[in-house]
Nucleic acid binder design. Structure first.
Lengths: 236, 236
DNA sequence: CAATTAAATGTCTCTATGACAATATATATT
DNA sequence: AATATATATTGTCATAGAGACATTTAATTG
């Protein structure tokens, strides 16, 4: 039997295969807090619970796993671009009542001012992390968010990735606050500014922002941040 | 319809699902060179080509994706433990002629002296990386190995992970050589030794090895290496 | 016993981070 | 208008780990 004949006889439906999905933690910054986009499930299983956006790979549309993730990001937020990264694939027989299931977990960081929520399909809502912690989400999605947070935390110690959450113009104090939020501890202003500036990850826009007292200079991302690493990670 | 009824009617065979596999790059150190374990394919597709060990998830046996990887490692090398890490999940409609397929890629680092190859199933062989580069492997497995090498390279700049490749006792010069091989460049002996020693990743065994000239002290892993990070990554 | 060679260490420079003090620039208050 | 106040921003110093390179140590070989 040659390969052509083999393929003709091959039918995946003859085998026991796992359920296979793509799920995504989409992070944004709203009122100084990290938010994650959740979708309300109006069908079984986990009906009535909130879940991460995601679902099955579309074998016709999706050209890759990442493309599937980009499609879902686009569907929910309207964003065709944006930072997207694969975190991990989690699979087990218990995480979905339908049977052995596996999900490829991604996360995205978006600038909330560019998002246009599409609520037409299913109710979609931004949830602050603090509120999520008290909520029992669908499937193992609480755990998935925890895994993503661990990754984001790690990344914030050696890259400037959190810049992706910022609007076009932002002050360094604002950026520092976001890092502090993700890291769960306070940072030294001088060290933080040196770090970000000498690495060339941000540049002044020339504008400034008067938030009350002394005006703060506004910066923009240089877009070097996605793949530029700090010379050294944060200590501790 | 309640969830119980829903699940009763649910049949995954009703849907178009991707092929789902686990593949693994198993690295070892043989005659001072990095080797990867390959399996000869005696069935379609990619019949006659060499491939990474891997295959379908066993929905009955495997309790998780990682358990599936551990099972395959055990089957091929006899090793029940050992360093194992998920790299990435790669999926696309083109990588397998049978259709949309997705593989969860793992890699393992093993001490060759502990391995007992099981050749009974399919012909299994260690291939030096240099030889693999000239060979057209099954599916996209050349690319999978490249992806793994990139990860291993990165890890070697900020962790002592390559220690997992070493035998029980080894000299620091030998260890340095392994790092140099993975990184593709030479390192400063003094800096390398300071790094590894101050981080507490290795400890003297008290023995020494006479390889010709001045005897070299032998060290063992303190097993802190798996999750201990160097204070700073290597420069450049 | 000198030459040789690999192992191991000494010493110096450099640089990014951390700690903390000091200064700058706006508004609010008197 | 001068002062208080709060946030933004910078100055200065200590520390530690990495890189560079020279030097010493301990074995074998002739």
């Amino acid at each position: 039997m040659n390969e052509k004949e083999f393929l003709k006889n091959y039918d995946i439906h003859d085998f026991d295969v796992p359920l296979c999905t793509v799920d995504m933690s989409i992070f944004s910054l709203i009122d100084g807090e990290l938010n994650v986009l959740l979708v309300h499930r109006d069908e079984h299983p986990s009906k009535g619970k909130w879940a991460l956006p995601g679902g099955f790979i579309d074998l016709k549309k999706d050209k890759s796993t990442e493309a599937a993730a980009h499609r879902k990001l686009k569907e929910k937020t309207g964003l065709a671009s944006g930072y997207l990264e694969q975190v991990e694939t989690i699979g087990s027989p218990k995480r979905d009542p339908r049977g052995w299931s596996l999900t490829v977990l991604y996360y995205a960081l978006v600038d909330i001012s560019r998002v246009k929520l599409d609520d037409s399909d299913k109710p979609t809502q931004w949830w602050p992390l603090s509120k999520i912690k008290k909520e029992k989400l669908a499937f193992d999605h609480n755990a998935l968010i925890d895994i993503t947070m661990t990754r984001l935390h790690a990344k914030a110690t050696y890259t400037a990735l959190p810049i992706e959450l910022m609007p076009k113009e932002f002050t360094l104090t604002e950026l520092q606050t976001v890092f502090e939020m993700i890291l769960g501890r306070s940072l030294q202003a001088k060290a933080f500014r040196n770090r970000v500036l000498t690495a060339g990850m941000v540049e002044e826009t020339g504008n400034s922002k008067i938030a009350g007292k002394r005006p703060a200079k506004l910066f923009r991302s240089t877009k070097a941040d996605r793949d530029t690493y700090f010379a050294r990670p944060l200590q501790e």
